[in-house]
Structure formats: structure tokens, C-alpha cells
Write a protein that binds this DNA or RNA. Sequence first.
DNA 1: TATTGTTATACTCTATAACTATA
DNA 2: TATAGTTATAGAGTATAACAATA
Lengths: 157, 157
Amino acid sequence: MTSRARIEHMDDHTGYLIIKVAGMAVPAFERALVPLGLNTRQVRVLGFLHGESLSQAELCARTGLDRTTMVAVLDELEQLGHATRERSKSDRRKHVVRITRNGKAAYAKATKKLLRAQEELLQPLAPAERAQLHTLLSRLFDASQACAPEPAAEAVS
Amino acid sequence: MTSRARIEHMDDHTGYLIIKVAGMAVPAFERALVPLGLNTRQVRVLGFLHGESLSQAELCARTGLDRTTMVAVLDELEQLGHATRERSKSDRRKHVVRITRNGKAAYAKATKKLLRAQEELLQPLAPAERAQLHTLLSRLFDASQACAPEPAAEAVS
DNA sequence: TATTGTTATACTCTATAACTATA
DNA sequence: TATAGTTATAGAGTATAACAATA
């Protein structure tokens, strides 16, 4: 070869491809929630409240959000009428965070919107390929989680 | 089942999985470059300068970076001795940005570090699966690019 | 002394607009 | 008038530390 090998842009690497596709997914999801007046972070938190009432610290542990950020998110959700805070009777330092009926309805709508956005994002792939992609990404994510086990968080009353 | 359908966390959706895996990849790549005193943005810009000299505006078009951000990145690269700026003779408004010998060496090292980081990230997957993942992600990305065609940028002197 | 939630602060990123010099 | 590069500035987002209440 007359020198100058084909230029290898880091943009072509699989790792960077992941980042670029995520860069498409993030705004797509945020856009999908705009009509509901919600953002993905709020919806994520609602998702963890769907089955059980948790303290703010426990919500932080599950979502990976900072506790100062969690204060802001819950302020927003409370103002929207999607969640409530009340002091725990067993440990008065803690707040029991509950999702409201409104919050559950909003979460259901949000899930539909997000699934539609995902549908659009994954449209170039056939169903079997989407399943493949899901499996491959799950394996990558699970492998990383195996290293850093999270301490089990219990529900509060 | 006694009501209460299985809770469907948005964290389990493929779209969100992409975001989470990207959330692992970004810091992994940044960490890989720390020993070289570089970040991914700088390396990306270097990658586009590898074959040809470009104006800042053309670099912006290719990388998608804002022109004010590009100023900062090139300030950094210039200070590191990895790139140079000089006024174009054909159009004195433009700067011809060139990668230096040092810059090429740094880019080569950075590429190795990034490939190793990617290797680690993709380790849970067999080679054939990595190729699959690459193909699937490429299809998603290419499909999105097909909508917004970029105007061809020419090299400068 | 440690933990829960809160507030205040600082720091980074990004986006916008305004300015200059050239065309 | 429009473009290339630069600078200044404001906003959002994030991270840190300090604080009050409770354990």
C-alpha cells in the first residue's frame, strides 16, 4: 500500500455506535413525553413506585439518582399530583413516597408513548432482530451489574 | 393471577437498555483516555483531521459540534500540540486546521486505548454476536441519517 | 455518631447572541 | 448582506458540602 491506511474514525467503533444510537433515543423519549408534561426521569421514578411505597433513599438506590436530584423530582411529581410524601411512622426521618391514582394513570399513558417512540426507533429492524438486539444489550448490561451488586432495598410504611 | 399485572419498568425496554449501555460506554471511553490527557471529543476531532485539513466550520459539519464548542476543543488541541490553526490563503476568514505529527501519534495511542475499552465492554459477547450488535446498531443509525442528509464539505487550503 | 431529607453553592455543559474580520 | 471565527453570557444539569431532624 502507498501508505495512508484507511482512516479509522472512532465513530465507526461499536462502542461509539452505541453512544450515537443512545443519542437518538434520549431526545426521542423526551419528545414523546412532552405532550404529557413529563420527562423520562419522572416517569422512571413513577415506575418504581408502581408496586410499592418507598423512601426517598430507597428510590435513589433503585434509580441511581442522587438524593438531591430526587428531592427535585419528587417536588415536581408532588406538584403534578402524581405522588405524595408523608413521614414514616416507624422512622420519622424517612418520607413514605406513594404514587397517586393520577400518577398511575399518567404512568400508563407515558408507557404507551414511550413504547410508540421505541417502536419508531426500532422500526428499521424486523421483530426477530429487535429481540436479538434486546438480548445482546441485556447481556452487556447484566454483565456490568454483576460486578457491582446493589444492596436489597425494603419497602417502608 | 390475582390482579396486579407484572410491573413494566421503562428500564426494561430496549430503547432504555440502549441508553443504559451507552451510560456505561461513555465513562469507560473517557476513563480510557485519561492517561493520555485527552477526552473523546478531542479524539473525535483529531480523527476527522487525520486524512485532510479542514476549516472549523467543516469540522463542525462533520462532528456535529457547535462552532463555539469547536473553538474550545481546538484551543485545547493546539495547546497540547496536537493541531495547528492558520488562516486560509484562499479565504482569509477561514482557519485551516491541521493535525500535527504529535497529534497523529496521540490519535494512534488513543485509538488503541479506545479499542481496548470497547473490547472490555463487549467482552460478554462472542465475536459473532459483536458483529451482530454492530450491524443492528448501524442499521438503526443509518436509518436515522437517511432522513437528514448532510451537505458535502470540501477540504481547504 | 450516623442517617434522611433539604438547601445552598459551585462547577460543568450547552445554547444564544453579539462582535470582528473578511467576503 | 452573509460567512468564519471568537467571545460573553445565561440556562440547565450535576456534584458537593453544609444543615436540621431523627435515630
